[in-house]
Design a protein around this nucleic acid. Structure first.
Length: 607
DNA sequence: GCAAGGTC
């Protein structure tokens, strides 16, 4: 009997379907001589400190450097405290029973570092010795699954991938557990002050932005505005120069040849530029972009959006939500035209779904090379029933984005008029000629809402027009805004992009800080620690958060670069480099940061 | 009491 193990039930079911296996058992499926079972993500984790004899939180234990890490069953919090998750324990027993009977195991966990770790931890925890092969596929269509099974790889091909995954896991444990205890003990043990490779740089970003915003000194500057009248249709033009003082602006204002100053036609049109611009449709959503949109549109937190999407996924209404890819492969694209027809009766965008039938679809979101473990989020086409208003809102964002992504370009005309009236003034305006994908939600472009003129009257170069009004505008420079969930998620995704070192930037190019699956949880962790709070939509640090930031801000643990450094080394381990060398460095860093934190403590008032 | 990673 061959046993196939997937990362999660949905994938096991997809594979079983391709094999034509339909018999459902408790915790697995079977048919055609195969059994199909699954994990629920990580079932096992590195055991906590007490399992190596480090009892309580004590300076004597630090740094905690276990000789050999142990594995323990994933925990769950109950009213009786933290216990082994019973559903995990049950599934592990089922897997053990199947592995015992197996002649061969086929590993079908997600094709990536963590997928490998999920299987290997189970395999080693169960002390299994059976031979295993690896299924390595990046989409779960029938064709991809069949193709993958024709090309099963030897399990040992992925040994180095496992080593890199295990190193990642141990390193996070060593640095996180030790630094957390060190800082907490040094602060007089008044509650948990946690630190970690991902949460601490995230906290640092929020604090740095908060301080920058708070300490920002706005600069006042002046502009001169004139109103120009084209046959009763007026538009506003602004001085091309900004002025430091009101006096400087006044000089320009006085030169304006307006009607009141005795010039009936004192606005001379120097030039009119009208440029058509094509705006391609947006990409399909990945988890992060959807969380950002849901935060902007509905004010949902990242965590809420993930929860709502998980509901929809469990109801088989949307594809896998925790994806970091905004693309689909050609195989999935082949099914898109039919999928679109399922929305022809949708109350909001049925019309756009109908309009897309028979037209050539945009292929901007189609790129198999950019599909990683999972493709972009799509509706499945199943008919939704009894959705809550919040679920419906998220569902509509998924479905609406699908229609947008395959729609035509939006064609705009951007007009710039330059007017001479004593000095130079410009007016710009944007007119949408063909809405294309923008017809789906039919909303104004948020980034362009500050434009002074939506549309401009048709004027000719050389025309002389009346200037009925003029005024001085007083303006202020603005600080960068505080982070909200949407902008923080985006900043986490692109955290690597601002790193100067080219190699580190490259190592983080596809990752950023955290992963799509964990970013919502990171924000929640910072809130739970009372490091940050939500104020309206903004995320602002508390005094505790700022105090922790002050202690760590110049240390490696607070830099996004740390993840880049690790990623680079982990990739080398994947390529066969020494594990011991890397872990040795991690241990010495652990010793260093532990000593430093114990020594420094947290002098500032942390209550 | 603690990390970051995955998922129901």
């Amino acid at each position: 009997m061959k046993v196939i193990i997937a990362e999660k039930p949905s994938v096991a079911r997809e594979i079983a379907k391709v094999f034509g296996a339909t018999t459902k058992k408790d915790g697995y499926m079977e048919g055609k001589g195969y059994t199909f079972t699954w994990a629920f993500g990580h079932l096992l984790q590195l055991a906590p400190p007490q399992e190596y004899g480090f009892y309580g939180w004590s300076v004597q234990n630090l740094p905690m450097l276990p000789q050999k890490f142990k594995l323990s069953i994933r925990k769950v919090k109950t009213k009786d405290g933290v216990v082994d998750d019973p559903s995990v324990k049950k599934q592990l027993d089922i897997i053990k029973g199947l592995f015992d009977e197996a002649t061969e195991i086929i590993v079908a966990t997600d094709a990536g570092r963590e997928g490998e770790l999920i299987f290997r931890y189970i395999y080693y925890y169960l002390k299994c010795k059976k031979p295993f092969k690896r299924l390595w596929i990046s989409s779960q269509t029938d064709a991809a699954i069949k193709d993958g099974f024709r090309n099963l790889k030897p399990g040992s091909d992925y040994d180095t991938l496992f080593y890199s995954a295990h190193c990642r896991s141990q390193s996070d444990w060593l640095v996180g557990m030790n630094a957390t205890q060190a800082l907490s003990l040094a602060s007089g043990n008044r509650g948990v002050l946690s630190l970690g490779r991902v949460q601490t740089p995230t906290l640092a970003m929020i604090c740095a932005r908060y301080l920058e915003n708070k300490n920002f000194v706005p600069q006042i500057y002046f502009q001169v505005a004139i109103q120009v009248d084209k046959d009763g249709q007026v538009f506003r033009a602004i001085s091309t120069e900004n002025f430091k003082t009101r006096e400087d602006a006044q000089i320009i204002l006085d030169k304006v040849e307006d009607v009141a100053a005795g010039f009936p036609n004192g606005g001379h049109i120097l030039s009119v530029e009208a440029k058509p611009r094509k705006e391609p449709p947006p990409l399909l959503h990945d988890l992060s972009s959807l969380q950002q949109e849901a935060n902007k549109r509905k004010g949902f937190t990242a965590d809420q959006t993930l929860g709502l999407l998980q509901n929809l996924y469990e109801g088989k209404l949307v594809t896998y939500p925790r994806t970091g890819s905004r693309y689909i492969g050609d195989d999935v694209f082949a099914g898109v035209p039919e999928l679109i027809t399922k929305f022809e009766n949708h109350p909001d965008f049925g019309k756009q779904a109908t309009a897309l039938s028979g037209v050539k679809l945009s292929k901007r979101s189609v790129n198999a090379k950019k599909v990683t473990d999972h493709h972009a989020i799509l509706p499945t086409g199943e008919k939704p029933n009894h959705l809550t208003p919040d679920q419906q809102a998220v569902y509509d964002m998924v479905a609406g984005r699908m229609l947008e992504a395959f729609h035509q370009d939006c064609i705009k005309e951007i007009t710039k008029i330059t007017v001479q009236s004593g000095s130079k003034f410009t007016a710009s305006g944007t007119v949408i000629n063909t809405p294309g994908w923008r017809a789906v939600f039919n909303e104004p472009d948020e980034e362009k809402k500050d434009e002074e003129n939506a549309s401009l009257p048709k004027v000719q170069q050389g025309e002389n027009l009346p200037v009925p009004q003029k005024a001085i505008l007083e303006k202020q420079t603005k600080p960068k805004p505080l982070y909200n969930e949407a902008s923080l998620l985006k900043a986490l995704e692109t955290a690597g992009k601002e790193i100067d070192d080219e190699e580190l930037r490259y190592a983080m190019k596809d990752s950023g800080l955290g992963t799509p699956a964990t970013r919502a949880a990171i924000i929640e962790t910072l809130i739970k620690r009372t490091y940050i709070t939500r104020e309206k939509k903004n995320l602002v640090p508390t005094t505790t958060g700022l105090a922790v930031y002050e202690v760590v801000k110049h240390r490696q643990i607070a830099q996004a670069e740390l993840t880049g450094t690790w990623e680079k080394r982990l990739e080398e381990i994947r390529g066969g480099a020494s594990i011991e060398a890397f872990l040795g460095e991690i241990k010495s860093y652990t010793r260093e940061i532990t000593v430093e934190l114990l020594k420094t403590g947290i002098a500032t008032a942390v209550k």
